[in-house]
Design a protein around this nucleic acid. Structure first.
Ligand SMILES: [Mn+2]
Ligand SMILES: [Mn+2]
Ligand SMILES: [Zn+2]
Ligand SMILES: [Zn+2]
Lengths: 161, 161
DNA sequence: ATGATAATGATAATAAAAATCACTTTATAA
DNA sequence: TTATAAAGTGATTTTTATTATCATTATCAT
């Protein structure tokens, strides 16, 4: 955790940005919620708990900055807000997502899986890939099991797409 | 074209929706711009040319309806607006996209390419895939060539992500 | 210290999408 | 047909995520 923050600090410095208290608080929230997919508003509310003086604009600016530095990836699941996803350190590809249309859960796939596909795209379409977004929509394993037992779904998720 | 509209008409009727003149005009615009990725506003402006009395709200409602019927797919390239993409008839998967970070062009890949990947996801994550979104960000072949000759990019595209 | 620059927070502005509502068109049934 | 309900429309307002503005504060280099 501390080491991770230190490396982000260095990364900021290398582009002559500073790790201000507000930025650090924001980064900490992201690290502490690594598995989640927080919106700017989500981040704002969480940061406020430890740094109540922070402004929403600063959170937006920080997230934008972290996105430029490729510390976070900005992603849109089609529910009307951008979400910010901490990029795994050293990962050379953005991980993939499984969005459950039943319960709204978002699971992650860290495995690349696209190696062959990307080769084909680069060769056949002469397209130099810099990044990708891959999201599957479907039914997660939890909802499969629930359906078997006829249990309730218990979620309040905005309709996707 | 006419046959396609007829099939969409039947599809609407099968769910007891009507193909009103406004809906037909909207569908025609989508068909005539099949290769583009129009926003609701884009569609509105184009429909107005042939049906000037149409309202923006109706266009939004029609696009939402066509999305439910899986006639169009709603997609977000990270530039702040939803775009509507006519689904190829009989296609059982949503096609993929190549977004050029240099010139903003969006090219399409109709080939599936994900067969093996989806098998792995369904087996290893026990996730029943219903749909997917795959977008590559990078440099298109046109911009590659331009870079060789040092030519100008000539685009005014909102920053992606 | 001093002046320059970067960063912040409050607030206003922007704009895409959704909601509202009066009105019109279409379907249904007496 | 007539009337009654339902579906659809267009103008408009409302919502809300994000961006822009701007005065103030913190940081850095001389
Ligand atoms: Mn993720
Ligand atoms: Mn497309
Ligand atoms: Zn689920
Ligand atoms: Zn290009």
């Amino acid at each position: 955790m501390e080491q991770r923050i230190d490396r982000i600090k260095k990364q900021l410095h290398s582009q002559s940005y500073k790790l201000t208290p507000q930025r650090e608080a924001t980064v900490r929230v992201l690290l502490e919620n690594e598995k989640d997919h927080l919106s700017a508003e989500d981040v704002y509310l969480l940061v406020k708990e430890k740094a109540p003086e922070i402004g929403l604009a600063t959170v937006y600016r920080t997230l934008e900055l972290l996105n430029e530095l490729e510390v976070v990836d900005k992603i849109n699941f089609g529910d009307g807000v951008s979400r910010y996803d901490l990029r795994k350190e050293g990962a050379d590809h953005f991980h993939h997502h499984l969005v459950c249309i039943e319960c709204g859960s978002v699971d992650e796939i860290q495995e690349d899986l696209l190696g062959e596909v990307e080769k084909i795209v680069e060769n056949d379409w002469r397209f130099k890939i810099k990044d990708h977004r891959l999201t599957f929509h479907g039914i997660c394993y939890r909802c499969h099991e629930k359906q078997d037992t006829g249990e309730e779904s218990g979620s309040e998720v905005k309709e996707l797409n």
